[in-house]
Amino acid sequence: MLSIGVMGVRSVLTSRLHPARIALLVALGVPVVLALGGTSGARTPDLELGRYLAAECMTCHRVAAASGGIPNIYGMTEVRFSELVKAYRDKRLSNAVMQTIAGRLKDDEIEALAAFFARTKRP
């Protein structure tokens, strides 16, 4: 029997991979899929989708920005890329072009783009 304790109850209920939570869900008949390695619920990014969507970005975003107008996004971490694009989508960052482009991107598309640019060092 697992020792949980008062503080442990919260972690059981909130932690996806806590063994006691998994046991509880199984007992309730809820199918449980264990994500092996890394964060729970991690999906393989759709790099082909990322490549297609990135074609639009590549007209403006190059590795070396001559006048500092448009930043380099190649090799940017996925987390940072997603944060920035969502900030434009939510209009927390101002730039009419980026707000319009980001405005039509869904979360899975942002994820695909982020994965593509993280793995692509140059156009």
Binding site: T59, C60, A65, A66, S67, G68, I70, V97
Partner: peptide
């Protein structure tokens, strides 16, 4: 204007 220059280089 700076954006337009970088766009030109990009396209």
């Amino acid at each position: 204007y700076r954006e337009s220059i970088d766009w030109y280089n990009g396209i």
